[in-house]
Nucleic acid binder design. Sequence first.
DNA 1: GTCTATAACGAGATAGAC
DNA 2: GTCTATCTCGTTATAGAC
Lengths: 197, 197
Amino acid sequence: MTTPRRGSGATAARVLDTAERLVQTRGFNAVSYADIAAEVGITKAALHYHFHGKAELGAALVNRYTARFTAALEAIDRDLTATPAKIAAYAGIYVDVLRDHRMCLCGMLAAEYQTLPSPMQNAIVNFFDINEAWLEAVLDDGQQKESAHYRGSAREAARMIIGSLEGAMLVARLHDDVTRLEITVDQMLTTLSHPTP
Amino acid sequence: MTTPRRGSGATAARVLDTAERLVQTRGFNAVSYADIAAEVGITKAALHYHFHGKAELGAALVNRYTARFTAALEAIDRDLTATPAKIAAYAGIYVDVLRDHRMCLCGMLAAEYQTLPSPMQNAIVNFFDINEAWLEAVLDDGQQKESAHYRGSAREAARMIIGSLEGAMLVARLHDDVTRLEITVDQMLTTLSHPTP
DNA sequence: GTCTATAACGAGATAGAC
DNA sequence: GTCTATCTCGTTATAGAC
């Protein structure tokens, strides 16, 4: 018999699922303990049992999101080899998030960055660092194999891709229009597949 | 002797300046009437005299921002003729905002979109519509004169530029690193100046 | 136009029973 | 683990004096 730790049980998982969706749609500062508790079907006090405070819940949120994202990147590395296919799959993650009427969790939190507790800030930066590093490696490999073409360093190209996806998502959500992101992705992939003049 | 209207005096302008800076750094939901009043040096009650409520203040904020932006676009049209120079000047506006440690007001509000009163939502969409239309015209002109090159329609290219700038800003702010945006701008301008293979 | 004072509500958080 | 009850604070907003 093992004693489950706080923030790790089945209820905690439901709390995280609910909080994640709410934060991705409204932003961290517009989501309250009362909102989450009501949707999960428990009281605020019970929520405080699972996550001591909002800062702790927020950090757990980002860390779980990053873990899921990292797992998705590893899956891409397992299943695909060509750089263009990998980048397409990467962009597909963003499209799927937007299809669910959500903003990227860390893109949303990036906007609120200055108001967030530092554990959350560090977790957010970490998320983008991991994304950058993964994309950089993929792009670098693609350049060597001449299957991907871009200007500047692989790191710079990686940053451009992340920025373009996050920004396209941000604006597409205003119109509830997934095609805005999809078109950006298509243009990006097309540009990447042609040699730079 | 004309009677000044509420929201139009010198104090109202100072309120808007302060609120604008606060919202661009923290987000609308993280800025309170108390914050603004304290920085301006008046009380919350006086603030309510100038702007009935937070929704009205927010809408005034976006509309003034849009008016300023529109004026800047007209100035670019007056001073510059070549498409690449115009796009560079356009991107320069974003760089200047970030240099001041701010996010684009409407980019910030885009994240919080779902939680904002509908007058603000409409004003935000209007801001992006104006930006898109202006960029589309500039890109279209550049394509005809063969000084700008891009794939797809001018409208699609305009959307990509806006998304890239907003997203690059969003992420650059995490690192307080203006060069991240500047490099994105440089890459964008370089790509735009070369014929697409 | 600006103030003091206060209303009315929601926020995050805690104590202690079950 | 979850509850009721409560605390304290911050929020938007209003009333009415100056």
